[in-house]
Simulated scan of single mutants.
Amino acid sequence: MTFGEKLHRLRRERGLSQEALAAELGVSRQAVSRWELGEVVPDTANVLAVSRIFGVSTDYLLLDECDREGQTPAAKSAERSLRERQAAVGQGFCARVLWLALISLFHQYRLDAAGGGEPPVPMWWLLAAELATAVWLGRLNWRYGAKEGGRFRDLVVPDLLAFTCAFGLPYGLEWVPGRWGILLGQLAAILLLVQSIKTLRLHYGLPWGKS
């Protein structure tokens, strides 16, 4: 769409006549008519004024390939940036959830083996998966600190405390009936990891709660 076609559409959507728009811009009705017909292109000052009146960007007005505001280079860049930030938070969330799940499975299978049962998968598989997940999480935390400008310890401290709770508490609470020791360790770890996720979301400019 040309500038003139966009101006005509915006003016009609706003319910403005050419005379009314011309009055707001401080130009003649004939000037607005010539812009819409594509006979001339307004100067920079008038393009900026049209942009302000209709609340659209100058890129949208001047780039013929942009049929809507969301197609402008700035809008596309902002959309990519948002997706990248959401992906960074999502990866951090998934790594931590997988980390806790593998620790829980380890304790479940350990207790089954102690009771004479056979774990569904070899224990070394779980330990290898846990190590791989820890490496993945470590790389994400390193990227957050080294490349994204965050404070490394803001993630590492709650992550290590969470690991200590999830892995260590079930050993210290084996006297608790059933598998409550595992559950309590997981709950304590989740409370700590919520802080890590909050730190990530706020760092990447994503909302948290009502803020």
Score class of each variant (00 low, 15 high):
Met1Ser: 14
Gly4Gln: 10
Glu5Thr: 09
Lys6Met: 07
His8Trp: 11
Arg12Asp: 09
Gly15Pro: 06
Ser17Phe: 05
Ser17Ile: 08
Ala20Lys: 12
Leu21Glu: 03
Ala22Leu: 05
Ala23Met: 14
Ser28Pro: 04
Arg34Asp: 14
Trp35Thr: 01
Glu36His: 07
Val40Leu: 07
Val41Phe: 09
Thr44Met: 00
Ala45Phe: 13
Val47Leu: 14
Leu48Gly: 06
Leu48Pro: 01
Val50Trp: 05
Ser51Ala: 15
Arg52Gln: 07
Arg52Cys: 00
Ser57Asn: 01
Asp59Lys: 07
Tyr60Trp: 12
Leu62Gln: 03
Asp64Asn: 08
Asp67Trp: 10
Asp67Ser: 06
Glu69Met: 03
Gly70Cys: 03
Gly70Val: 10
Gln71Leu: 06
Gln71Cys: 05
Pro73Asn: 12
Ala74Met: 02
Ser77Cys: 02
Ser77Leu: 14
Glu79Gln: 04
Arg80Lys: 02
Leu82Tyr: 11
Glu84Cys: 01
Glu84Thr: 01
Arg85Pro: 04
Ala88Ser: 01
Gly92Asp: 00
Phe93Arg: 03
Phe93Gln: 12
Phe93Glu: 09
Arg96Tyr: 08
Val97Asn: 09
Val97Tyr: 12
Leu100Phe: 05
Ile103Cys: 07
Phe106Met: 08
His107Phe: 06
Gln108Val: 15
Arg110His: 13
Arg110Ile: 00
Arg110Gly: 03
Leu111Tyr: 05
Ala113Gln: 15
Gly115Ile: 04
Gly116Pro: 10
Gly117Thr: 09
Pro119Glu: 00
Pro120Lys: 12
Pro120Arg: 03
Trp124Asp: 15
Leu126Gly: 07
Val135Ser: 04
Leu137Thr: 11
Gly138Tyr: 05
Leu140Cys: 05
Leu140Tyr: 00
Asn141Thr: 14
Lys147Met: 07
Lys147Pro: 03
Glu148Ala: 05
Gly149Tyr: 13
Gly149Trp: 10
Arg153Pro: 00
Arg153Glu: 14
Val157Gly: 03
Pro158Ala: 13
Pro158His: 04
Asp159Phe: 04
Leu161Trp: 03
Phe163Trp: 02
Phe163Asp: 02
Tyr171Glu: 13
Gly172Asp: 06
Glu174Asn: 07
Glu174Gln: 14
Val176Leu: 14
Arg179Asn: 12
Ile182Asn: 12
Leu184Cys: 05
Gly185Asp: 06
Ala188Ile: 11
Ala189Asp: 13
Leu191Glu: 15
Arg201Val: 07
Ser211Lys: 15
Ser211Ile: 06
